[in-house]
């Protein structure tokens, strides 16, 4: 159950190792309560975040994707987040043309010391995704999804849900 209420949704977070990942950690150490829908993937830098990671997550069943890195001028590698900013802004403006709500994707900057900001970012983004609800299913008949039933029959119902919506 999500803290935001209702069924937990699948949100993927790509976090820069040098800032936001620490920020998320700081939020945890500071015992700031956060929704639990987010699954975090640690990245060396937002400059490593290919916009295709976001798109791949969205077509594969993620309901929202969050990218968070170092504030401009604070990149551990000087300029990774500047490249990321351009790419991610272009991506954000592509989504509506695909029929995907642009709010399903968000990028922001959180430093390692900003635990409170991290809490706000996650809470607000998760709330927004819950307002939008789950992503529309792309392939209800996807072969690899059908086989999940096999797992269910064998008492493995706690497996992760099918990759492309139920």
């Amino acid at each position: 159950m999500s803290d935001v209420g209702g069924k937990e949704l699948r949100i993927i977070g790509f976090l820069c190792n040098w800032c936001s990942y620490g920020g998320a950690d700081a939020a945890g150490v500071g015992r700031f309560s956060q929704p639990t829908d987010l699954r975090i993937i640690r990245m060396p830098c937002t400059g490593r975040v290919d916009p295709l990671f976001v798109l791949k997550a969205l077509v594969s069943g993620a309901d929202g994707v969050l990218v968070s890195g170092c504030h401009p001028r604070d990149c551990h590698y000087s300029e990774g987040n500047y490249y990321a900013r351009r790419r991610l802004e272009v991506l954000k403006r592509l989504l509506p043309m695909l029929g995907i709500h642009e709010d399903r994707f968000h990028y922001t900057w959180v430093s390692a010391s900003e635990g409170a900001r991290w809490q706000q970012v996650v809470t607000r983004f998760t709330e927004r995704i819950h307002e939008l609800g789950p992503m529309d299913s792309l392939d209800p008949e996807l072969a690899v999804c059908a086989i999940r039933e096999l797992g269910g029959e064998n008492g493995q119902a706690d497996q992760p849900a099918p990759a492309s919506g139920e």
Binding site: I147, R148, G151, P160, A163
Partner: peptide, 8 residues
Amino acid sequence: ESDGQAGV
């Protein structure tokens, strides 16, 4: 083509 423990 596998997806976690499941595949085809």
